[in-house]
Structure formats: structure tokens, C-alpha cells
């Protein structure tokens, strides 16, 4: 069971309180009614499945109810960071020891 830091509750909570909600930062096109098939395909059907870092959404569904974003390493299941919905995508860089650091907060 993972431990997930909810950016709204300000603490780590057990995974049982959360629900995974798909890839993050997939912007819904506006106006969506006007986009062509290729753009719709990219928006709705195509998703990344990386080995390594993934930007994804979670919802603290049995907690504060909020959706938020997370950066997780799919190899170690380690969360690099979580941040509120609507915030800009957090960039992450590899550090010397093979771990990950938030960009701008490197040691």
C-alpha cells in the first residue's frame, strides 16, 4: 500500500483513501467541438505508459475529495512530488545518485 502526500490535506495518507485518475496534464481542447479527428485521438485515446517518471492524477476520494497531480517513478513506485490541480507541471531532474529532484530545488 502506497503512502500518498495529499497537497490539500498537507500530509501523507494511506493509498486506501485515494483513487487513481489517469494521466495528468491532458488539457481538454477548447472549443473541443471544433477539433479534428487526429486532435481528438491525441486528447482522448493516446496515453503514455513510461518506465520511469509518470505525471498522473489522483483523487483523495475518501479524504478531502480533491483531485491533484503527482509525479511517480513507475519502477520504484516512489512519489517524487504531488501538487494541486491546476498548478503547472512540475519538472523533475535526475540527481547524481540516480534519484530524482524537483527542478529548481536540486541540492
Amino acid at each position: 500500500m502506497l503512502l500518498i502526500a495529499c497537497p490539500y490535506c498537507g500530509e501523507e495518507r494511506p493509498e486506501l483513501e485515494f483513487r487513481h485518475a489517469g494521466e495528468a496534464h491532458v488539457a481538454r481542447p477548447d472549443p473541443i467541438a471544433e477539433i479534428d479527428d487526429a486532435a481528438f485521438e491525441a486528447f482522448f485515446f493516446l496515453r503514455d505508459n513510461p518506465k520511469g517518471l509518470i505525471w498522473e492524477r489522483w483523487r483523495h476520494v475518501h479524504g478531502c475529495g480533491r483531485f491533484f497531480n503527482a509525479v511517480r517513478d513507475t519502477v520504484s513506485d516512489r512519489f517524487i512530488t504531488t501538487y494541486k490541480a491546476g498548478e503547472v507541471r512540475r519538472e523533475v531532474v535526475r540527481d547524481d545518485e540516480g534519484g530524482y529532484q524537483l527542478k529548481g530545488e536540486e541540492r
Partner: peptide
């Protein structure tokens, strides 16, 4: 859940 998703993330 679906309604909350759109409300919180598309139409906040």
C-alpha cells in the same frame, strides 16, 4: 466522481 472530475479540473 465524473462530475467532480469536470468541476474540479476543467471548470474550477
Amino acid at each position: 466522481h465524473h462530475m467532480e472530475d469536470y468541476l474540479q479540473t476543467e471548470y474550477p
